[in-house]
C-alpha cells in the first residue's frame, strides 16, 4: 500500500447467510487501487464483483478482512461523501426533472443555491445533456437517463466513482458511445473509477487495470495491467494488442470456471 493507494482490500471475505446455507460471495480478496486508475471488475454472475463494489461503498459489511477507502473505513468514507455511485438502473426520481435529480445530492449535502445551479449546468454539459435540465426522466431514452445518473454521481466533489454495470441494460451502439464518453470524462475529471461489467470488450476498452473474478467462492483469479495507450479511439478494438488482451481476460475467466 503506497501513498497513492485510494482503495485497499486485505483478505476480504463476505458470507451471506441464506436459507440454503451460507454463500461465500467473497473469499480472501486482496487488491490495491491507485489514484486515477480505471479499474474494471469482470466475471460471471455470482463472482462477487458487485458485492466487492458494494463493500467499498459501505452498502455491505465484510465478514472478515479489512478495506480502507481514502485511508479510512468505508463507513467513514461514505459519511465524508468520498464516492459517487452509479447503479445498474438509472433510478432517477420521476417527480424531479433531470436538473432536479442532479441537484438531489447537492441539496442533501447542503450546497447553496448558486453552487447547485452552477454544478448542475456543468455536469450536464459533461455528459452532453445540456438543454435537458427541465425535462422529466420518463421523457428521455434509457441511455440519456443513465447519462443523467452519471451526472448525478459527478455533481458533488467525490474523487472516486463506483459504477455497477451502468450500461448493462443498453444496446451495443449506445453502449459504445457511452464508453467513449466515459473515457473522455475520466480523463477530464481525473477520478478513480471502479467499474463492474460482464463484457470483455468493455472492460478491455475502458480500463487501466482489469480484475478478473471467478465464482463460488467469489475471488480474484487475475489482475491485468492494461498495456493499451491512454488515447483510445473506438477502432483500437481492432488492434493486435486489444485482441491479445481480450484473449487473456477470456483465458482468466475460463480458468476460474474450470477450477470449480
Amino acid at each position: 500500500m503506497s501513498q497513492d493507494t485510494v482503495i485497499s482490500a486485505k483478505n476480504l471475505s463476505l458470507t451471506f447467510q441464506t436459507n440454503d446455507g451460507p454463500v461465500n460471495a467473497l473469499k480472501d480478496v486482496s487488491l490495491d487501487i491507485n489514484r486515477g486508475e480505471f479499474v474494471s471488475f469482470i466475471g460471471p454472475s455470482g463472482c462477487g464483483k458487485t458485492t466487492f463494489l458494494r463493500v467499498m461503498a459501505d452498502l455491505e459489511k465484510p465478514t472478515a478482512g479489512k478495506v480502507t477507502v481514502n485511508g479510512v473505513s468505508p463507513e467513514e468514507a461514505r459519511k465524508n461523501r468520498a464516492y459517487g455511485y452509479v447503479f445498474q438502473a438509472a433510478g432517477l426520481y420521476p417527480w424531479r426533472t433531470i436538473g432536479g435529480n442532479i441537484r438531489l445530492p447537492l441539496e442533501i449535502m447542503g450546497y447553496d443555491k448558486a453552487a447547485q445551479a452552477e454544478r448542475v449546468k456543468q455536469v450536464l454539459e459533461l455528459v452532453e445533456l445540456a438543454g435537458f435540465e427541465k425535462k422529466y426522466p420518463w421523457q428521455l431514452s434509457g441511455g440519456m437517463q443513465q447519462r443523467a445518473s452519471i451526472a448525478r454521481a459527478l455533481a458533488f466533489d467525490a474523487d472516486i466513482l463506483l459504477m455497477d454495470e451502468p450500461f448493462g441494460a443498453l444496446d451495443e451502439i449506445v453502449r459504445d458511445h457511452l464508453n467513449e464518453q466515459l473515457l473522455a470524462l475520466w480523463k477530464k475529471t481525473n477520478k478513480t473509477i471502479g467499474f463492474v461489467t460482464h463484457s470483455i470488450p468493455e472492460a478491455v476498452f475502458l480500463s487501466t487495470k482489469i480484475v478478473v473474478m471467478s465464482p463460488r467462492p467469489g475471488r480474484i483469479s487475475d489482475v491485468i495491467d492494461s498495456p493499451l495507450p491512454a488515447e483510445r479511439p473506438l477502432d483500437i478494438r481492432d488492434t493486435k494488442e486489444f485482441i491479445e488482451l481480450s484473449h487473456r481476460v477470456r483465458e482468466g475467466l475460463r480458468a476460474g470456471h474450470e477450477a470449480e
Binding site: L59, R81, Y85, G91, M109
Partner: peptide
C-alpha cells in the same frame, strides 16, 4: 432497495 441505497451513498 436501489433508491434507498442511493440515499445511503449520500449519507442522507
Amino acid at each position: 432497495l436501489m433508491q434507498r441505497d442511493l440515499m445511503r451513498t449520500y449519507s442522507a
